[in-house]
């Protein structure tokens, strides 16, 4: 059974039909990437999984159990952490407090939370030097690191990442993707939304291509990366 299974999902924003009968599955311990152009519905898919949006039709199952209609904080409790588009850093809180908020829904003991916090800080050593700093003063790349670290402190089983590479320098993008792979190797399942299809398909096991609200293609990441239409549309031709 896949960890996350979406089927026949339709989502509207008022009259705008943003997702049309989406089917998507994420197997445990995999990285699955969802690629597509602007306005394709990638963020909408993640928002629906994490409970910010309610689908009109279709089902979303986590471990075989429906999570449709649950409030977002309940879905976090069930093991889904979402690092949203635009990072969503609390600029009025310190870096440390942002990390603490990430652990908000956890009911296990302090020591376990501290261990995961340590683990996040080991992945992003820059954050450690800035723990007492207001998160609003971090650079864009550091904010992205904080967004990922914060999601990890929730100790999710499924991590939803929405364009973690957006607006970052190539070197930082590399680091971020490297860390995404490390997180996955440590056992966390990841659903990764990206416009940087090249990097995303490079780290992912599977990929889905979304075009104006429909899944038009899904395959092994490697096959997708070498398929002609994907190369033309998302990998800059050649």
């Amino acid at each position: 059974m896949p960890l996350l299974e979406i089927s026949g999902l339709d989502v509207y924003y008022g009259a705008i039909h943003a997702l049309r009968s989406i089917d998507l599955a994420v197997e445990e311990r995999q990285i699955v990437t969802l690629i597509g152009g602007n306005g394709a519905g990638k963020s909408t898919t993640l928002r629906t999984v994490s409970g910010l949006l309610r689908p009109t039709r279709g089902s979303i199952k986590l471990d075989g159990k429906s999570i449709v209609g649950l409030p977002p904080h309940e879905i976090v409790r069930r093991g889904v952490a979402h690092a949203p588009e635009g990072r969503g850093i609390f600029a009025n809180l310190t870096v440390d407090e942002n990390l603490e908020i990430g652990a908000y829904s956890r009911r296990d003991d302090r020591a376990a939370i501290d261990r995961d916090r340590e683990r996040s800080l080991e992945l992003f050593p820059r954050l450690r030097e800035r723990l007492r700093q207001n998160a609003g003063t971090l650079s864009g790349g550091e904010q992205q690191m904080l967004a990922i670290a914060r999601a990890l402190v929730a100790r999710p089983r499924l991590l939803l990442l929405d364009e973690p590479s957006l607006g970052l320098a190539p070197q930082v993008v590399k680091t971020i993707f490297h860390i995404i792979r490390e997180i996955n190797q440590a056992g966390t399942t990841i659903l990764l939304v990206e416009q940087n299809a090249h990097m995303a398909l490079h780290v992912a096991h599977r990929g889905y291509v979304l075009e104006v609200g429909r899944i038009v293609k899904s395959d092994d990441a490697r096959n997708l990366a070498s398929s002609d239409d994907v190369r033309k549309a998302y990998l800059g031709g050649v």
Binding site: G51, L52, P71, G88, L93, Y104
Partner: peptide, 25 residues
Amino acid sequence: TKVGRAMRAVSFDTRVASLMGVPVD
């Protein structure tokens, strides 16, 4: 306190706070 931190988070960005597991209501 934890609840105070949650209050500040909610006042900054309600949606993101809910994504972090904060019961906004």
